[in-house]
Amino acid sequence: MGAGLAGLAAALELAAHAEVELVERLPAAGGSWQFDHPAVRDLVGRCDRAGVRLTMGVTALRWIERRLLLIGPGTRAWREADHLVFAGGTRPATPAELPLFGARVAGVFAGTVAHHLMEAHIALGRHLAVCGSGYWADLVLAEAPSHARVTVVGGDVPASPRVAAAWPGYAPVEVRGRDRVEQLVIERDGHARAIDCDCVVLAADQRPIRNVDGAITATPDVTYVQLCADTLTPDAVVDHAIATVAGLHGRNST
């Protein structure tokens, strides 16, 4: 499940030993690497030649007794399988996971969401507080409009000229505001300070996306291929995927 680099690499690795179907929610492979990334194109071609069945535009929702529920405009089916390899990608931590308390107001976005909205040229604020560094933070920093003031909280100090202020080592702990975020309280070693902002982007602390019921936490018939790190290279993702599924094909179906 998941035709990003990790899912493609895992599918190819397993295809020599088993019948493999690769299910992807979006109409194209690539995941966060995009369909035209050379490593993605290469793996898609090799998967194709190795007999991997690619099923695009279909969402996997449930994994129950070795049956995977697939829902999409063209496919509505329970697919039988011996094993589920879950390569659903990663996302930044949610407020509950960080944990970040305080007001529930407009203007607090997951890095994934902020990226999509900025890509669509929707102005999210004049003063952005970006929490964390790495993939999603970099995208947001690159897309932030030139008039926006950007403060980075936690993570590494980014080299970007877009950053007006940085608070390395700090973690966001509380959101303040009435209708929209007005301040983000950040903390390091018990020292708190409030920074003014009208948009908070949560891009810290990568977590594996888990959204197939029955495969949320580890079970013997599920293997997760989700490398969580702030910065990833295609090689690291592919190597991790191959290493994770190596040996799976030795396990006989029961």
Binding site: V105, A106, G107, I122, R180, D198
Partner: peptide, 28 residues
């Protein structure tokens, strides 16, 4: 979800409401 909501009401995505207080997605 923001795009579906904006389309249904014929408004810009930035005008879609966010949070219980009545703030919206876009700002500035």
């Amino acid at each position: 979800v923001i795009l579906l909501t904006a389309n249904a009401h014929g408004i810009d995505p930035g005008q879609v409401g966010m949070g219980p207080g009545g703030g919206s997605v876009g700002c500035g």
